[in-house]
Amino acid sequence: MTIDVTAQRVLPLPPDRVAAYATDWRHDAEWTRGIRTAELTREAEGGGFGAGAEVTRTAYFLGRRIDYVLRVAAYEPGRLLDMVSVAGPFPMHVTYAFEPHPRGTLARIRVRGGEGGFYRLAAPLLSRQVRSSITKDLRSLEHRLTEQE
């Protein structure tokens, strides 16, 4: 993979609260800046959201519309959401992780992807753009959750 970017931020809230909001696909468009819509298009084997579920997102990145489907590879409520793209313009792997921190929650987003061709050539620019985007997402997440206090 040619892109591997991580951003993290300490949020002054309990991990369970941060993770519950951030891993609920119904909130994706509220705090994830590029996402316009998100829809649960396949439930997990046991029903609802969990490993095997799929979320279809419409996003805008660098001024372009991107439609893609992420399948939940691993889900540990309150701690981890790991997703891989199964449809879209390029391979993508997105991980949200939440850990207790003395000041609240250490929230981390990691994005990997973009193998081959154009993505290999554009990796430095795309990495900067992705890092900027997910850093802003974490700020937006904090703002959204502290506003609800």
Rank of each mutant, 00 (worst) to 15 (best):
H101R: 11
A7K: 04
L126W: 03
R139Q: 15
A123Y: 07
E45T: 14
G104V: 07
I66S: 05
W31D: 07
Q129M: 14
R42Y: 02
R108H: 04
R103W: 10
T135W: 06
A29I: 10
G104Y: 01
E43N: 04
G114E: 02
R42W: 01
S133M: 11
P100C: 11
A74M: 01
E115W: 13
E39R: 09
T146I: 14
G104W: 00
I109S: 03
Y21L: 15
Q129Y: 06
P91F: 00
E142M: 02
D24E: 13
W25G: 00
Y96I: 07
R131T: 12
L13R: 02
R120M: 12
T58V: 13
P77L: 12
P89C: 03
L62A: 15
D137A: 14
R9K: 15
A7N: 02
G50E: 09
T95D: 05
P77R: 10
G63R: 02
E99P: 01
D82K: 02
S127K: 00
R64P: 04
F98H: 02
I35C: 09
L138D: 07
L70D: 15
L70C: 11
E147W: 07
V55W: 01
P14C: 09
D137Q: 10
R110M: 05
A29R: 12
D67T: 15
R108Y: 00
P12N: 08
A74C: 02
F90P: 03
R112E: 12
I66R: 05
V5F: 11
E147M: 06
V72P: 00
M83C: 03
G47S: 10
A73Y: 02
V55K: 01
E149N: 10
V84F: 03
D28Y: 14
Q148A: 15
G50F: 08
A38F: 00
A73I: 07
T58F: 02
P15Q: 11
L145H: 01
F90V: 13
A97S: 15
D82L: 00
E76M: 06
W31Q: 04
A74G: 06
D67Y: 04
A59L: 14
G113H: 04
Y68P: 03
Q129L: 12
L62K: 07
K136E: 14
S127W: 00
G46Y: 01
T146Y: 05
T37V: 08
W25N: 00
E115T: 13
F98G: 02
F49V: 14
S133C: 10
G50D: 08
E30F: 04
L11M: 12
G34Y: 00
L40S: 10
A44C: 03
P14L: 13
G48W: 09
F49C: 09
Y60W: 13
